[in-house]
Every structure is written in structure tokens, then in C-alpha cells.
Amino acid sequence: MNHDPFKKEHHLRTKLDEYHVEIPDFPMQSRGKRWERFINFLASPAKDPIEPLISTTAGFAVLKLAPIIGMAVISILQLFFFL
């Protein structure tokens, strides 16, 4: 027989009983499931990848300078290859 570890935990039991879950209405199988999941994936909110850069002034400066530095590097590489 299993001993009930919650027997003396009245307050914890009350708190756990407060956790209700609302069951949505959905069918056993949905048609076009893969496509539907892909759409849900695309539509789900995601974190902003450049947010850490925008939040600091140094990061913001890096973000502004990165395209200029990138272009300079590409130009130098082109000079080496084509001249």
C-alpha cells in the first residue's frame, strides 16, 4: 500500500487544488496537421535577436558600425582578388 505523503500537508493540498486547467475543445486528429503546426510555429512570438545590442549604448554603436566595417572588409577583399 502507498503511504500518502500529502496527509499532513493541508496547506499544500489547498494550494494544489487551486490549480485548475481549462480544457480546450479540439478533435482527436486534425487535418493538415504538419502545415498547421508550421503556421503556428511561424506565428508564435519569439525573442528579438538584436535586443541585447539595442539595450546598451555600446551595443547600439556596434550595430551601427557593423555594416560599415562589413562593407569595408568586402571592399578590401575585392581589391585583393580583382586587382
Partner: peptide, 28 residues
């Protein structure tokens, strides 16, 4: 069994869409 299974997965993940997907996949 759907309500019990859904509530277990939902309480575990707190992700409604994932819980629905898992319930449907389990029945498949």
C-alpha cells in the same frame, strides 16, 4: 481520457498548443 491527459501535459509545459499536439499524437 482527453481531459486528464491534456491537463497533465498542460501543467507540465504550460504550453497550450504543445499540449494539444501531444494529446493528438498520443491518440494517433
Amino acid at each position: 481520457l482527453k481531459p486528464a491527459l491534456y491537463s497533465f501535459i498542460y501543467r507540465y509545459t504550460r504550453d497550450q498548443q504543445l499540449s494539444i499536439d501531444i494529446v493528438q499524437d498520443s491518440f494517433v
